[in-house]
Each structure stands twice: as structure tokens, then as C-alpha cells.
Design a protein around this nucleic acid. Sequence first.
DNA 1: AATAGTAATGACAACGTTGTCATTACTATT
DNA 2: AATAGTAATGACAACGTTGTCATTACTATT
Lengths: 337, 337
Amino acid sequence: MVTLKDVARASGVSIKTVSRVVNGTAEVSAETRQRVEGVISDLGYHPNTMARSLVNGRSNTVGVIIPHSAGYIFSHPFFNEVLRGIAEVLANNNLNLLLHLAHQNTPYAQLYNQRRVDGLIFMSVPTGDPNLEGVLESKSPCVFTCRIVEENNPTHWVDADFVGGLEQAVEHLFSLGHQRMALLAGPRNLISVQLRVKGYRQAVTRNGLTVDEDNIHYVDFSSEAGHDLAFQLMTKPNPPTAILCGDDMMAIGVIQGLQEAGRRVPQDVSVIGFDDISLARFSAPPLTTIHQDTYRKGQIAAETLIRLMTKGNENSPFQQILSTQLIIRNTTALAPR
Amino acid sequence: MVTLKDVARASGVSIKTVSRVVNGTAEVSAETRQRVEGVISDLGYHPNTMARSLVNGRSNTVGVIIPHSAGYIFSHPFFNEVLRGIAEVLANNNLNLLLHLAHQNTPYAQLYNQRRVDGLIFMSVPTGDPNLEGVLESKSPCVFTCRIVEENNPTHWVDADFVGGLEQAVEHLFSLGHQRMALLAGPRNLISVQLRVKGYRQAVTRNGLTVDEDNIHYVDFSSEAGHDLAFQLMTKPNPPTAILCGDDMMAIGVIQGLQEAGRRVPQDVSVIGFDDISLARFSAPPLTTIHQDTYRKGQIAAETLIRLMTKGNENSPFQQILSTQLIIRNTTALAPR
DNA sequence: AATAGTAATGACAACGTTGTCATTACTATT
DNA sequence: AATAGTAATGACAACGTTGTCATTACTATT
């Protein structure tokens, strides 16, 4: 491997001068600079980032953490888009991305000391994750792509407006005359799921109805779960005329489950998804869903982190709720009479 | 930050002895070890990986490279699964994963010197990618999840059996009486696409027919592209009775395009996808497709790389073709007469 | 009792950088 | 002509580890 020493020897200057040329940190005579630059490209010198990090204590690396208990997210189309947003922003800022699949019992804060990451982005932290301990106390830069507790808390985060999104969805169904709506919310231990439920409750009670707890189902974000539960719901007396889903994968499973149970979508049962994944347009029928801008979410998370890394901790936490939009396609219709 | 020096001072031994306790590299008396271990956990010491890397020249980090021209892959459901396979294997081996979104004109080989990665995994390298220069020459560990040229070459790779997969698909369609099959192969500059075309050609000629070049279409891996092209194909005289797709996203778009053009799937036109993404079961109708084990592909790539990193370069390149299976669901039927 | 062998430990250099301070050789000012 | 200021450069220490070699204090063997 070519080092500063090699370049220095070959160009007849000191190591420090080569360092100056590489970093542009101080005046170097034009003549010397040219000579050194020539040698650098001849020898193919590239600075060793390990040595640099050791000296200046920064690694130009950002850790993206996938909590152990959130392994499901890895197979979710939503994940790609958030990660893409993050990766592009980091790449544009010459920052490295360390994708960290958390072990069962390793505190996330260790990455700051051990891997010398300059900041952390958390993908989807469930409530009460014990490995979070030490992260906030350390005051090191970190940003969450989700809320970690429902109430106010001093963390920095970007999150979709799950409450508002579900309110929109419920209002849409009310306007179509639906009264009995099932909610397949998602895994119970996620704040985003709890917020979906909150939005559902708020909209239902605002319309003067009481929430029937039996209509709220906590199931995995998967087509299988949606499929199975939808089929099962149709065997009950007085089944729902509409099904709200925590994500589009579920919704697509639900549509098929309903069809297998002999129900037409949307004439017999309406279905609404959440996310608006790229395939939502292409389901049959095309899916009515709540759109969230997952790519933008990733970008904002990375941009926020970079700001924290360069400008230091801000006084008040950065907390942004990204609005969602109801995209009406063909899986919702007037409630059957 | 707590260093070896701090631990050494607090426990009254030399730095080197603490290092021995941390690494278990030599005999340390039980008494000393206990004392040092106590101090380590009291102070919360964690070794600085930068310093370690500087000394031993290894970073315990593997770079996963997404070539600049293959940015599309980031939004593909296929990507998640490969990455998940890689990430899990690396995590189990205590290796870090550096996700590297390549810049336009930066040779990938720089990561070896600059970031001191111990190995590289390439996600989807298009033919003739100039940034590949230096990677093979460097003899540093690297594994491709795809072939980089069609013929034999000395690289290590795992790849799905695209040729065999398409042969299976074509044979299936022949057995149903189809004669005019369109192939929406994918982007022309990918070897995997060229191999799909090869399999298609082989199966067609084996059945005594000549390949009509107009039936081969190079389009993006996207539902939109599939949708648009399918619709368009149906406006032509003598349209195909079956459409083979390079991936499932396309196929799902194709199904909708056909339905919009007033064709029933599979009664009027049969459709076959590739990948068997998790949603394939839940399309309407459920998609007949070629299954490939993308998760396993990621695992094998990572396992192979680790072997190269630990045992050194093997004499003959490791090259594995993962078999594919035709999954017959409901989008293929007897050709209309 | 002398010697050889081993377990346990420490001193010091090295990895490849950057930061601090010193030195040299100018140029501009009085 | 003396002085001050600045541009250009280098020597050396430091970042936190690990590797090499040396030293000490034993124990086992002759």
C-alpha cells in the first residue's frame, strides 16, 4: 500500500508537505504541489481513512441501525425507499454508510465508541427497546425515522403522519356510508402502529360512534396475515364492510382473502392500504391507499443527522411529521345496503 | 473515550496486559485477568477499531457495492432479500457491512486502500463497467452476485440460473400450445438479461422454431414499463398469446396492461414472471413465475467472501449457479385457438 | 545446587495520519 | 541597513492499538 511516506520520498519533500497537498490545508508552492500531485497519481496514493480517523476522532461514517426485533422491516418494500433516501444523501456528502443489523443484546451506543461512527440513524425502533440505553445520554448525533415514544420526547425524528393518515382513511369510508370498519393495524409494539390506532379511534369517535375494540387487530405486516384474517373475518356474523390496513402488503393479501371468501372488492367490501408502494397502482383492483413519501423520509433523516454532526446539537429537537395523502383508486366504494 | 491506557492505569498493569485480557492472546494470571475485566466493565471500555485496523491492516468490514449505473436495483424487492442474506451472514461473523452507493467515476478498487475493507460484494454489475478496473488485478477478496461477462472468467460469483429458468418457462408455454411469445427481458446491459434472452432462444430453437427478434423487448424492470408495453403489443396485428417477463414487477404491470386492453389473463394471454417475490402469490390472478432464492444468493455470496478472506484466494474460482423452479399459479393457460 | 524451561508481564516500536511548533528564506517596511 | 512579517517547509509527538523482544519469577529437571 502506498503511504504518505512513499509519496514524500519519491517527490523529495516531507510527509507533512504531502499531507498539505492532499488536504489543501496550507499554502504549498505551486511548483511543489504540481510535483507532489504528479507522484500521487503515479503511485496511486489514497489516504488511509483508518489512520485519519485515529487522529481526528471522526470516521466519516454513519451507522444505519436495524434493531434486532425489527428484522421484519428488511423484507418490506418500504425499507428500500427509506434506505435509498439515506444512502443517496450520505453519498452526496462523502459519508460512508454502515448498515448495522443489531445483535440481540448489544447496546446501540457501542457503535459510537467501537466503530467511531459520527452519527446513527435508527430505522424502526419498537417501544421500550432496552438496547437504546446510553444512546440519548451520550449526546452523540442520532436521528430516528420514527417516534420512540408516543408523547413528546427530546429525540430528533422524522415520521409519517400515521394519525392523520388513518383519520383521512376513516373519513373517506364514512363518506361512503361505511359503519363497520376493521383495522388491521400491524405489530402492537411499534409506535407507528399505535398511532394508526389512535387516528382510527379519533376519527370514529369524532363521527359520534364508539370504537368496538374487537374491530382492531394487531397482526404482522405481511400479505399472508392480511389474507388469513380477511378470510376469517368474513365467516363471522355481521362482518365489516370495510377493512383498513396498516400497510399495502397486508391490503393486497386482504383483497385476495376477500375474493376467496366470495366477496367482491370494492362492491361488497372496501379496502384501504397504507404506504402507496409502487405496486399499489398495479394490484387488482388498483389499491386505494394512504401515500407516504418514504424516500423523502430517508433523505430528511440523513440531512438532519448531517446538520447535527456539523453544527452540533440543536437546542430544541428536530421533529418533523410528513403529511400523508389519501390516494383513491378502485378498492373503495359505497357501502352495500 | 476510555482507552487501554485508562484501564491499565486503573488496574495497575501495563497496556499490553490489558490488551492480552481483551484479546485473550496470551496467558494472563487468573487474578490479574479478573481485576482487569472488572475495570473494563466499570469504565465501559471498548476497543477502538480504527486503531486496531491501522495496526493489523484489516477492518473487519465488507463493502457491498451498488454500481452507479445499477441504482434501479435499490427499489427492487429482489434487492432486500439479497442484502438481507448478506447482512445476516456478516453479522453472524462479526463483520461490518459498508453499503456503498458508487459514485459515477470512482473505481471500486479504491475501497480496499482507502476504506481498508477486507472484501467486496458486488450487487449487479453491468457489462463493461469501467469502474471495475483494478478490482480483479488487486487479487483482493471479492464476490459477485452476478456474472460480469457471459463466458468463463476467473471471478467468484453466485447467480441464478437465468438460462434454465427461461427455458423452463418457454417449455411450459409450449406445452400449453403457445407459439407466439413475447419476451420483456430487462435492461440490455445486464448479463442476467442477456442470459434470459439466451435461455429463451435456446428453448425456442430446440422446439424447432426460429426466433423472431421483434418478440424480444429490452425494457426497464418496472411495472410501468410492463404495463405500457403489454398494452401496446395488443394493438398490433397478430399479437403474442403469451408474455414472458424478466421480473415479477414487470409481470404485474403486464397483467394490468392486458386487462386494460380488454384481454383476460390467462384465457386470452398467458403471463410468466421471474423472481417469485412475496407478492407474486397475491397478484390477481396469482402469478405463474420462475422462483429464485434471492435470500440464499446473498448468504452464499457472503459465505464465499468470508472463505476467501480467511483462507486466501482459492485456486479455481468459486462459481455457483442456483437452480430456479417454475411455480405454476394462475396466469398461464392453454393457448387460445 | 545449578540449569533449563515456562508462565506472566512490561518496554518500546510501529501502523499512517494530522497537529503543533520551529526553522528557513524570502519580501515589505521603516 | 535593520526589522518585521509572511510564505513554505520540516521535525516530532500524538491518536490507540498490536507485535516483538526482553525481563522477572517461578517450577521442574539434572
